[in-house]
């Protein structure tokens, strides 16, 4: 069955909302990258890593993810009522 056609171009607000969703979708991918990144830092034979540095790094990116998600959340839940235009 053919879906009803959706508008190809949007006004400013719905456009912003969709880009916000894009950002929200990308956030976990970005976060996963940051969390796996340390795997690549030190080759097994190199000098032992500084564990306290790792701790600080991990908690910083964690905090950053939380803040980013907190920044996105109001916009995402606000847009939900307005649009059934789900998958951009």
């Amino acid at each position: 069955m053919k879906r009803p056609r959706r508008p190809m171009f949007l006004a400013r607000d719905p456009y912003r909302r969709r880009r916000l969703r894009d950002a929200a979708r990308l956030l976990p991918v970005f976060g996963a990258f940051l969390m796996i990144l340390p795997v690549l830092w030190s080759p097994p034979d190199a000098a032992p890593r500084v564990t306290s540095g790792d701790v600080v790094y991990f908690f910083l990116i964690w905090l950053m993810l939380v803040l980013a998600a907190a920044g996105f959340a109001p916009g995402l839940s606000a847009g939900e009522d307005a649009g059934k235009d789900e998958d951009d």
Partner: peptide, 19 residues
């Protein structure tokens, strides 16, 4: 620090709740 992974996974899932 391996214990962190147990909390990182859920963090990713919740941060990516739109999925």
């Amino acid at each position: 620090l391996e214990f962190l992974t147990i909390y990182f996974g859920p963090t990713l899932v919740f941060v990516g709740w739109w999925w």
